[in-house]
Design a protein around this nucleic acid. Structure first.
Lengths: 312, 312
DNA sequence: ATTTTTAATAGATATTGTCGATAGTTTTTA
DNA sequence: TAAAAACTATCGACAATATCTATTAAAAAT
């Protein structure tokens, strides 16, 4: 039994296809097939059921695959140890970010980070929280930035900052004359929301006390971008809520429509999340340091109330 | 990096000697040397400091060795999974037993076990609790039978039975006329003890309320066998305490001197202990089943008070 | 100073991981 | 239904490498 064989097994288990698994493993299909067979011979069990399409993992196979994941993970931890000892920060590092954080936060730290750690090949993926979690679990992401708390067993969370919700209320709106907002003032039915799947949407719904009539609005337009929401609001279609960092880029005419919440302002907790196995932890720490340092200047709210990003 | 290389590293770390490590790994010394070097090259760090005699493990090396242990352990878990699936119970299995349990318990279950599981090659070692713990930690023992609770982080305990302490008191002794004993009756200074290192000794000392004057006895003879203690007691050198199973083999004249404790009788908890990683757990479970079944007939005390086997 | 112990090196050999080509299936498409 | 496509297993060849024996080099013990 070799680590390579276990890696091949993992690839097949993932893609359910020897040919594809071989490609992803950068070997030819016969090579991969033979190694998997060899392991199966050695253990004297079938890991895969080639009879089915797509290929199925046998019952024993599932257990073996789970354990193989363990082993391969622990093995890659060795290079981690060495890197840490050498103070080397480098290699591929895949970071996921949720869509509502991406456009504002990424430009703030990306340049600084790649300048400070030129040997890290940072790969950024924009994904929903749900995808992020799945990809962290099976090792496709080294870390991610998302709204927390998620309270997931295998994930560790390191808060980066607390970002208040800010109301965008056109003059003509029911709340147009309010100086500041309170959560009680909100009514889901006239708050413009992001598309389903965005956790900021769930956060806003959680914030609004009585989500009684979701889906009962007069119209059903949900957008994936805050820009659309703001423009809709300007067309008297209702109000909306924005994360604080998104309000910084509004032009003067629009920023007049911003209304902050009374303290404690509702806010989302934005964290760096990663697998509890803490692979590549040095890079994760480096990333956290960079982001924290930058954000500390741009955003400093104390009295906030964290709104859960999870739909109930 | 291969699992084999990691195994070689572990061997060198253990024996601090390439030649010996090679022998124990059943390869020649150059083979082992080269593989270790290859791993060091690949990681670009020195794991061992060959300058010192005996060979020292570098700082990084220690971390790598620790992680390598992990990986090798997890890897051998794969065959475990397969064995379990096949219902196969076999292979080498090394069991440690403390001296005060060995002579009475081993004959009770050994024959039954090897008959029921002929494919298991059972290797028995008699060792002090201290050694057992150490050997379980570094994988030289698959399990052990000892007095518990030990409360050690990496060890799991599965109680087998509760064995009461029984007094052996000659007629002429201060307590010779008592029908039954109470812990308060005991005085360390006239209880004959086993040698230092036996946990039964520590248990007895814990039982005696006031261990004030240890070492102040008139004489300092401590034996490694209960037989000696009984014979000394017959010579009016004091009384002694025996584990229940040891009292069964006394001849009639001696067994008249036995005095049981009032309920709840002090007792030792005897457990099967093993590493929390649960390697070879099927064999461990099989062993536990066999012993439990046999002991259930021979020993059945309900109202006991467990005495800690750890010296305070 | 000599012997012994121990690790590294060199060259030879056997093993094995990998590839390219191909054959045998099954599934999909026409 | 026939043909094409997709996919895995098998075969022979090649290259990488794990291992061995023999030897050298260095350190420790005598």
């Amino acid at each position: 039994m070799t680590i390579t064989q276990l890696q091949y097994v993992l690839a097949v288990a993932e893609y359910r296809n020897f040919t594809l698994a071989a490609q992803k493993s950068f070997v030819t299909q016969p090579t991969l097939s033979m190694q998997v067979q060899k392991l199966e011979d050695e253990l004297d069990v079938l890991i895969f059921d080639r009879g089915k399409k797509p290929i199925a993992v046998t019952e024993v196979g599932k257990k073996i695959v789970a354990q193989a994941k363990n082993i391969v993970n622990e093995a890659s931890r060795i290079t981690d140890i060495v890197d840490q000892e050498k103070g080397f920060i480098g290699g591929d590092y895949t970071l996921g970010i949720i869509p509502t954080i991406m456009p504002t936060l990424l430009p703030m730290f990306l340049k600084t980070f790649i300048k400070k750690y030129p040997k890290v090949n940072l790969i950024i993926r924009e994904q929903s929280t749900e995808s992020l979690i799945r990809n962290i679990q099976d090792g496709h992401l080294d870390a991610a930035i998302a709204a927390t708390p998620l309270e997931i067993e295998f994930i560790k969370e390191r808060p980066l900052y607390y970002e208040p919700f800010v109301g965008y209320v056109p003059k003509s709106h029911r709340l147009g004359d309010f100086k500041t907002l309170s959560p009680e003032d909100l009514d889901v039915s006239d708050v413009l929301l992001l598309q389903d799947g965005h956790c900021f949407r769930d956060g806003v719904i959680n914030l609004c006390k009585a989500p009684k009539e979701i889906g009962k609005e007069h119209f059903q337009l949900q957008s994936g971008s805050f820009e659309t929401l703001v423009n809709l609001a300007d067309e008297d279609m209702g109000m909306t809520l924005l994360p604080y960092l998104n309000t910084l880029e509004l032009d003067k005419s629009k920023s007049q429509n911003l209304k902050y919440f009374n303290n404690p302002s509702p806010a989302r907790e934005v964290s760096l999340i990663y697998h509890k196995s803490e692979l590549k932890i040095q890079i994760t720490e480096a990333l956290r340091d960079v982001i924290s340092a930058i954000v500390r200047g741009a955003i400093a709210f104390q009295d906030v109330k964290i709104i859960s990003p999870i739909s109930k």
